[in-house]
Nucleic acid binder design. Structure first.
Length: 425
RNA sequence: GGAGAGGUAGCGAAGUCCGGCCGUAACGCGCUCGACUCGAAAUCGAGUUAUGGGUUCAUAGCCCAUACGUGGGUUCGAAUCCCACCCUCUCCGCCA
């Protein structure tokens, strides 16, 4: 959510930002509502001030044994008027709020204009694509042949876009998650969190999933509960409606959770394999930063995500998402795309975003500087470190051998009981 | 799920029966500043909620409004009376 006062004073900036994002929002409608809102506030507050003083007089007169019927009668009318105006204000407030929560964040100046992911800017590449003297297979072939991935039974148990991990695959998934968590907690100073993976409407609203993107979520029927699409949601909400002491910042959290996405509107995309599941696991990083530090923090967090890919020896590239591809809450996002030889392309494996104060404003996440009276909104950031299922995909495809076996990257071996290679029976 | 108790500032807690200078909210703790001290402790003094609107260059000051778990209701006036809901704690039941 953007700041009301900021929008009021910078209508052109907002209009331009929304155009860059290809977002269709009526800025003029806001001006009309905002003006009416302030008129109503001024009017009702004046009446309330009158009522407060006169009501005190009533009390004093009664105490003195005097008659106050005239004042009571007059305030009765004022009360009616206040009631009517309050009701109108409530409606206008609601409209202003509906408008505000549907407006995406303003892109950072370093984000380039563009329509969709084809306009994203490649920042750099790391490593080299492995070379094969045979035709590299896609991960579902490898994983199924090695007996680790069972898509048929996943479909039987739940439906399409669900999978069953068996044996080495289950262990490899767990190994990857442990490895990622260990790196982020012991080397990069993140505090590990295990949050609820079911949250309420308020929580989903603060991080920006609701009200606009309800269709992307799984909701538990007959309740106010939603399954989280990412740990960003519960972890960012950890400090909702809190004012943090300056010394607590920055706060750095990491969480390994299942994530649930309905994938509405992605029919026909990535129907095979692990790339696009209704349920998958992710290790997420979330940071609460002072405004002046948030962009440096974004670079640092991106590097923390990259560390995992480097240690696994996976070729990847970093892209700076263009305005049209940016998420709703983000001002700037780096995607890490890992090389998949089986698919012969780069695929997203991490997304690191700065949301500045957009989520903090929705969620009331503040901090107070030492010696200052006023509170300020923190900046929130989140990044995958990494998507675990997709990392397993990358390991399979990049470390495959001609005979269908897969070498376990060095960094994972301690987590796999020393296992060095996965071989077909 | 059943019974009971409770939700007031950063924390603890008074006020609720009997509505009215009790919300810049008693009292205690913590925190900040100052005094005392070589320094510290102790002691003494002062300060210490947030949001919205107006004014303003100002997110400085000042004025006003709102908020006593949340949402309604009664009333000239609600922390206080009435209704619904949420959460926490204790006991019981169930349970990994």
């Amino acid at each position: 959510m953007l700041d009301l006062k900021f929008i009021r004073k910078n209508l052109d900036v907002v209009r331009e930002a929304l155009t860059r994002r290809r977002a269709k929002v009526d800025v003029d409608a806001f001006s009309v509502l905002d003006e009416r809102r302030r008129e109503l506030i001024t009017e009702t507050e004046a009446l309330k001030a009158e009522r407060n003083t006169v009501s005190k007089d009533v009390g004093l007169r009664k105490k003195a044994g005097e008659d106050a019927a005239d004042l009571v009668a007059r305030m009765g009318e004022v009360g009616e008027r206040i009631k009517a105006l309050d009701e109108e204000l409530r409606l206008v407030d609601e409209q202003v709020n509906d408008w505000l929560v549907s407006v995406p964040n303003i892109p950072h100046s370093s984000v380039q204009d563009g329509r969709d992911d084809s306009d994203n800017a490649e920042v750099f590449r790391w490593g080299k694509a492995p070379e094969f003297d045979f035709d590299p297979k896609e991960h579902w072939e490898l994983g199924t042949a090695l007996g680790g991935l069972d898509f048929e039974r996943g479909a039987k148990l739940a439906g399409s876009r669900f999978v069953v991990y068996r044996g080495w695959a289950a262990r490899l998934e767990r190994a990857l998650a442990s490895f990622m968590l260990d790196v982020q907690t012991t080397e990069h100073g993140y505090l590990e969190i295990m949050p609820p993976v079911i949250v309420n409407r308020e929580t989903m609203t603060a991080t920006g999933q609701l009200p606009k993107f309800e269709a992307d979520l799984f909701k538990l029927e007959g309740t106010d509960y939603y399954l989280i699409p990412t740990a960003e949601v519960p972890v960012t909400n950890l400090h909702r409606d809190e004012t943090l002491p300056e010394d607590d910042l920055p706060l750095k959290y990491t969480a390994w959770t299942p994530c649930f996405r309905s994938e509405a509107g992605s029919y026909g995309k990535d129907t095979k394999g692990l790339i696009r599941m209704h349920q998958f696991q992710k290790v997420e990083m979330v940071r609460f930063e002072k405004p002046e530090n948030s962009y440096a923090a974004l670079e640092e967090m991106r590097e923390h995500a990259e560390t995992i890919l480097k240690r696994l020896g996976l070729h990847y590239r970093v892209v700076n998402l263009c305005t049209g591809d940016l998420g709703f809450s983000a001002t700037k996002t780096y995607d890490l795309e890992v090389w998949l030889p089986g698919q012969d392309k780069f695929r997203e494996i991490s997304s690191c975003s700065n949301c500045e104060d957009f989520q903090a404003r929705r969620g009331g996440i503040r901090f107070k500087r030492k010696g200052e009276k006023k509170t300020e909104l923190v900046h929130t950031l989140n990044g995958s470190g990494l998507a675990v299922g997709r990392t397993l995909v990358a390991v399979l495809e990049n470390y495959q051998q001609a005979d269908g076996s897969v070498v376990i990257p060095e960094a994972l071996r301690p987590y796999m009981g020393g296992l060095e290679i996965l071989t077909p029976e």
